[in-house]
Design a binder for these strands. Sequence first.
DNA 1: CAGATAACAGACCGACCGGTCGGTTTCTTA
DNA 2: TAAGAAACCGACCGGTCGGTCTGTTATCTG
Lengths: 212, 212
Amino acid sequence: MSTVDVDSVERIDGRRARGERSRRSILEAAAVLASVEGLEGLSLNRLASHLGISKGGLYAHFDSKEQLQVETVRAAAEMYGRDVMAKAVEAPPGIGRVLAFADTFLEYVKDGPFPGGCFFIASFLDPANLRGPVRQALAEVQRGLLDFFAENIRIAQDAGDLPTDLDPEETAFEIDAILVGADVNYVLFDDPKRLENARLAVRRLLGADPGS
Amino acid sequence: MSTVDVDSVERIDGRRARGERSRRSILEAAAVLASVEGLEGLSLNRLASHLGISKGGLYAHFDSKEQLQVETVRAAAEMYGRDVMAKAVEAPPGIGRVLAFADTFLEYVKDGPFPGGCFFIASFLDPANLRGPVRQALAEVQRGLLDFFAENIRIAQDAGDLPTDLDPEETAFEIDAILVGADVNYVLFDDPKRLENARLAVRRLLGADPGS
DNA sequence: CAGATAACAGACCGACCGGTCGGTTTCTTA
DNA sequence: TAAGAAACCGACCGGTCGGTCTGTTATCTG
C-alpha cells in the first residue's frame, strides 16, 4: 500500500519476522502431529495448545484448516527435501543416488521427526484428504518422487549399470512400492526388520551388492 | 437363561434371526464406508442413516464404536476370504497360487465393493486406528497374508520353481509391498496403470511369464 | 392370554469440532 | 508521538461426535 518502497528490502519488520517464525514452527509442528493423528484428525485446538498458543492465534496465519493442511504438506516436503533428498543428491546420479535416497528415507522413517512413520504415506490414504487441494498437493509430491526414481534409472541405463530393456516407470513404481510397504509394515508391526527387508529389496531390484 | 434347551437348535427365533441379518448388513456397510471415510472417520450417525436406521438401533448390536470397528475388520476379512482368497486357493499351491491371489486382489481393488481401494490398506494408515484392539485385529490379518505368501514361496522352492537361496519372508514382504504400493498409487492418482505395474512386478519377482 | 425379550426410534447429554469476533499487546511508520 | 498494522488471547457460535436413556413394536414362551 505504501507509495515508494515497494518491497522494503533492507528494513526488516520485527512483527512480520516474529510472524514468520511462528508460521514455520506451526507448520513443522502440524506436520509432526499429522504423521501421528492424520492431517484431518489433527485438530486446531490440539495443535494450538501443543504450541502454547490459542486457536485464534492460528487464524492470524491461516484462513482455514484446509489452507493450513495444504501448507503443511508443502512444509513436510521441504523437511524431506532438506533431510532426505539433500543427502541423496550427494551421491552421484544413477543407482547410487537411488540407493542413497532409499537408505536415508528408511532411516528417516525410523529416527526422523515423524513418529507416525512417513508423513506422506500416512496422508495418502487418510480418506478425508482424498479430495480437493490437499490431495493435489500430495499427488504432486508423489509424482515428483516417481520422476526422481525414473530419471536416475534412465541415467543408470545410459551408464550401462542397468539393462536397457527395463522400463524406468515400472522400476520406479517398484522402488516406491518397496518403500511404501516398508513404512506401512513398520508402523503396523513396530518392527525395524521391515526396513531392512526394504533395504535388501531395493538392492536386489537394482542388482546392487546387498552390503551397502 | 432357559433351563432345558441349552442351544435350541431347531426352533429359530424370528427376532434373533432378524437381528443377525441386520448385524451382517451393518458390518458390510461399515466396511464399505470405512474404505472411503476411514474406520475412525466413519461416524455412527452416517452409518445409521445410510442403513435407514437410527443410531440407537446400532447400539442394540454393538456396545461401543470400538467393538463395531473390530468386528468390521473381521467382516472385511471374511469378505476378502470369500471373494479373493477363495479364488486364489483354486490355483495349485506355489507360484500359481500367489499369482492368482495378486491378480484377484488387484481386480478387487479396482472393481470390488470397496470404493476407497483396499479396506485394510486404508485402515493400516489411518493413524487413529493405530492403537488398541483395532490395530491388533488389523495386524493379525496382515500377518496372515504375509504367512500365506511365505508358505507358498516355500512350496514353490520345494517344487524347484524358485531358487532355494531366496528368503521366503523377504520375498513375501516384497510381494506384499508391491500390492500395497499399487493400492496407494491407484487411489492417489486414480490410475489403473498402477495395477498393471503391480501385476508385472509380481511376475518379475517370481520369475513368471509376464503374460498371465 | 400374559409376560419376557430382542430390535428398533428418537430425544438427549457433555465434549469437541472448525470458525468468528472483539479486545489487547507489540512493533513500525509517518 | 499518534496512527495503524500484525500477532495473539479468550469467549463464543452452530454443528457433530460417541454414547445414554426411555419408550414402542414385534416376536417368542409359558
